[in-house]
């Protein structure tokens, strides 16, 4: 069984005002098949955690470790992490002009599998996944994220999640900017991916809204660069009622 294990992770970022400490000792273990929700106020470091797992060069790991099935993720390049089975659904996916969705998906799949997918089944899989996410066929020939609406970008992220079949996926505020219909479609996609591959999920969100459709096994409250409290799904309900106020004393980082 796969395990993603984050231990005492400290991360800083360079800003104009100098080095800023963002993560201050994060400990978190996710087993295959588990859904963990990380909730927290703005500026608490949730996205930093997501990008650090994926290996964004902006974030500097000062200490700690991230182990995937015993291998140190922090020593891997960004692309090696993806090939090892990690996936990050981004909050603001960038546009890649000149590269069509079809071309991009096939290139990514080939990179991750180490060989090109069999053409016939691949086309079928892509079509099926796009159908499920109510993505129009014309998406396939559009350039990646170019001119996509917010909802389309998020669907495109989940499309990749379904097709690339990672062991662990981090969803960074995938619910933000989605209306309720789009939220349902995207959530169904995530649930389908989990049902099909049994992946482990780290769901990063500010709101409890998405948790109505994707049911977490564990909820962690993230404040000031570390996990302040954890519990089961009932913790999310409590946050829904009370908000983050009781965690916000004395300060947060941003």
């Amino acid at each position: 069984m796969s395990v993603l294990e984050i231990k005492d992770l400290h991360v800083s970022v360079e800003t104009d005002q100098g080095t800023k400490q963002i993560l201050r000792g994060v400990n978190l273990t996710i087993n295959e098949g588990e859904i963990h929700a990380i909730m927290g106020p703005n500026g608490s470091g949730k996205s930093t955690l997501a990008y650090t797992i994926a290996g964004h060069p902006k974030y500097h790991v000062e200490s700690g470790s991230i182990m995937l099935d015993g291998a140190e993720v922090l020593k891997m390049t960004v692309d090696a992490r993806a090939r090892a089975g990690l996936f990050l659904a981004m909050q603001y996916p960038v546009e890649i002009p000149g590269v069509t969705v079809t071309n991009f998906l096939r290139t990514a799949k080939t990179a991750i599998e180490g060989e090109a997918p069999p053409i016939r089944t691949w086309i079928k899989d892509v079509r099926q996944s796009m159908n499920n996410l109510r993505m129009d066929k014309t998406f396939a020939e559009r350039n990646v994220n170019e001119g996509f609406s917010g909802g389309e970008k998020k669907r495109n992220e989940i499309l990749q999640l379904e097709l690339l079949k990672p062991k662990f996926a981090v969803l960074d505020e995938t619910d933000s900017g989605l209306d309720v219909d789009a939220l349902k479609i995207v959530s169904e996609g995530v649930n389908r991916a989990k049902a099909n591959t049994g992946l482990g999920l780290l769901l990063i969100t500010h709101y409890t809204r998405i948790l109505r459709y994707i049911h977490p096994d564990f909820v962690h409250v993230f404040v000031n660069g570390r996990i302040a409290e954890q519990g089961g799904p009932e913790l999310a309900d409590r946050l829904e009622d009370e908000g983050y106020d009781r965690f916000l004393v004395p300060s947060n980082v941003g």
Binding site: D79, F87, V94, I96, G98, N103, A108, A111, L164
Partner: peptide, 29 residues
């Protein structure tokens, strides 16, 4: 830019392949 590179790499694509993908896409038109 670095963000485009990061996005492509985060999908398993090597830096070299990412550049090739983008340039080919750009000039193919």
């Amino acid at each position: 830019d670095d963000e485009q590179l990061f996005y492509l790499q985060s999908r398993g694509i090597t830096e070299e392949e990412a550049r090739r993908l983008v340039v080919r896409g750009f000039l193919t038109e």
